[in-house]
Simulated scan of single mutants.
Amino acid sequence: MATRKLTGEALALALKEPTGHLFRDLARLRRALTHASARGSTGADYERLEFLGDRVLGLIIADLLFNAFPEAPEGELSLRLNALVNAETLAEIADEVGLPQLIHAGSEIRSMEGRKRVNLRADALESLIAALYLEGGVETARQFILRYWEPRSKALREARRDPKTELQEWGHQAAGAMPVYALESREGPDHDPVFTISVKVGGFEPASGTGRSKREAEQAAAMAVLLREGVWSKKEEDAR
């Protein structure tokens, strides 16, 4: 992540090739890549843009999947969408775009690791999408999103089963018990919380997962059990 605030011109040039767009509103672009820890006295950071970018991304991905999988039921489409817009996928794409080197953040944020760093990259990417949408309209945002997300949508040959549903069925067969989820912690500000949730099934060891929502954390915890117990193999999980 950038240790100093880059000029709007430098940001625009750095993002011209990976986004396919040369930004004209340099003030907005700088705001789109400024974390709250570095906003200074102006109060300009990417939180509002992140909110908008999340909705723009969701709409365009939903439209992509709706047309690409005309026979898929709503449940399958939802699973595919969730796999394409989760924090891990967004952080991965942010790395491809080169965002970590462009984000302006405080020193305490730059030193973060693990899940919080994933969320930071994901949030900045959503903010960038909002900046593209506001400056170039929905088609500019769509072209950027399709460039990075469409290949991933095609790679999802089969939508992964919902981990919580899979764990519930496995728990019934293996232990005659239902999974029990418990909230372990909630960290971060209200606009960007990180939840940690544990799950226990019968006499099996519990496992924990984290996420930006309780549901996402529960899914991560369920997946941890499925992988640990060999219900899902790591190779199969990576291929999904």
Rank of each mutant, 00 (worst) to 15 (best):
L11N: 03
L11K: 01
L15P: 07
L15R: 09
L22Y: 06
F23Q: 01
A27P: 04
A32K: 00
A32L: 02
G43F: 08
G43C: 02
A44E: 15
A44V: 13
Y46G: 01
Y46R: 01
E47D: 11
E47V: 13
L49C: 08
E50Q: 14
G53F: 14
R55D: 14
R55M: 14
V56P: 02
V56L: 00
I60S: 12
I61M: 12
A62P: 08
L65R: 08
L65G: 05
L65C: 14
F66W: 15
F66S: 14
F66T: 12
A68E: 07
E71T: 11
E74T: 13
E76V: 08
L77Y: 08
L77V: 09
L79A: 14
L81I: 10
A83S: 15
A83T: 14
L84Y: 02
V85P: 05
N86E: 15
A87W: 04
L90E: 12
A91Y: 06
E92Q: 12
E92M: 08
D95F: 02
D95L: 03
E96F: 11
Q101E: 15
I103D: 01
S107Y: 11
R110M: 09
R110N: 04
S111R: 05
E113H: 05
E113T: 05
K116D: 13
K116T: 07
V118S: 10
N119C: 08
E126Y: 11
L128F: 03
A131H: 03
A131V: 04
L132P: 06
Y133M: 00
L134S: 08
E135K: 07
E139T: 03
R142E: 15
R147I: 10
W149S: 12
E150V: 04
P151Q: 14
R152G: 03
S153K: 01
S153L: 12
S153G: 10
K154W: 12
L156V: 14
R157W: 13
R161E: 09
D162Y: 10
D162M: 12
P163C: 08
P163D: 03
K164S: 13
T165M: 04
L167C: 11
Q168M: 04
Q168W: 07
Q168Y: 12
E169G: 10
E169N: 07
W170S: 05
H172M: 02
Q173S: 04
Q173D: 14
A175Y: 11
A175C: 07
M178E: 15
P179N: 10
V180S: 15
A182N: 02
E184Y: 00
R186T: 05
P189T: 09
P189W: 05
D190I: 09
H191N: 00
D192A: 03
P193W: 04
T196D: 05
T196W: 04
V201E: 00
E205G: 10
G211P: 07
G211T: 02
R212V: 12
S213Y: 11
A221V: 11
A224C: 01
A224T: 03
L226P: 01
L227H: 05
L227I: 02
R228A: 13
G230A: 13
G230T: 04
S233R: 08
K234D: 06
A239W: 06
A239V: 08
R240Q: 15
R240Y: 09
R240M: 07
